[in-house]
Write a protein that binds this DNA or RNA. Structure first.
Lengths: 128, 128
DNA sequence: AAACATAACAGTAACTATTACTATTTTCTT
DNA sequence: AAGAAAATAGTAATAGTTACTGTTATGTTT
């Protein structure tokens, strides 16, 4: 079976730009709202489909809120801290991914992804 | 304002028992199905309400699947590995929580919870 | 022990995030 | 320029969860 051909799409590139141009870790709906400022009649289904494709092709990352799925334009190695008071996500550097390698070898698992999420209260919420 | 009084409820205790008596990290719906074997006319809303209360009171833990929320009767320190092939969750000991303490102090955050989830393929799925 | 206040309930409707469907348009190759 | 199929807009459907409503169970106070 051949690899699926991916054609150029103005909508997909716009969505990618929207996700990459912010640090707020938007969810699908706010990507939709933001993209509609550029392509007013874009469909919500198109946004979901393209966000999933962008994740599959490794161009963006998927995070998880309480219930909602969120996206991150930064694909570099980092972890996440979420403030439960203001709801903001912080990118943090906490864990060296290499520790998972020895873990996988020890247990005979193959690790494909990992996700470390801390939650709590951030400095600015603690101060105010 | 007074602390909210929590009354005894047969349903809640049964739900707790169901969650504590398994290692499969059930989701709300399967807790519902299992509890109905004991209380046949229990309502799905009652299951959700009580699962949330049990989480709030620290008696069970909340995990996150791709979309579904899952629950864990084991509140001790451990992390999670999920096999993307068979869907099973494994409890693993990977990270010493004390590393978060120094992180919190350094950044002036207050950490209230953390969640480390690894995903990949487990040994038995790799073998078969 | 009877009366009271309200937490918890069962059953159902509503809501939110996401996916599926369909007819049309766009992209790319020949 | 024509043809194949990837992608689209718009809408309907689905899944997980919460909200609502009238009734029942629990615990407290007379």
């Amino acid at each position: 079976m051949e690899p699926i051909k991916q054609r150029y799409s103005h909508q997909r590139e716009t969505i990618l730009q929207v996700v990459q141009s912010t640090l707020v870790h938007p969810n699908a709906d706010s990507v939709y709202k933001e993209t509609r400022k550029i392509i007013p009649n874009i469909s919500l289904g198109t946004v979901y489909r393209n966000l999933n494709q962008l994740v599959e092709s490794g161009r963006i990352l998927k995070l998880k809120d309480e219930a909602m799925v969120r996206y991150d334009g930064n694909t570099g190695q980092h972890d996440h801290f979420r403030c439960s008071k203001c709801g903001k996500w912080y990118d943090v550097e906490l864990i060296d991914q290499s520790i998972f390698k020895s873990f996988a070898e020890k247990h005979d698992f193959r690790i494909e992804s990992f996700n470390l999420e801390l939650a709590g209260t951030c400095k600015s919420c603690l101060d105010s």
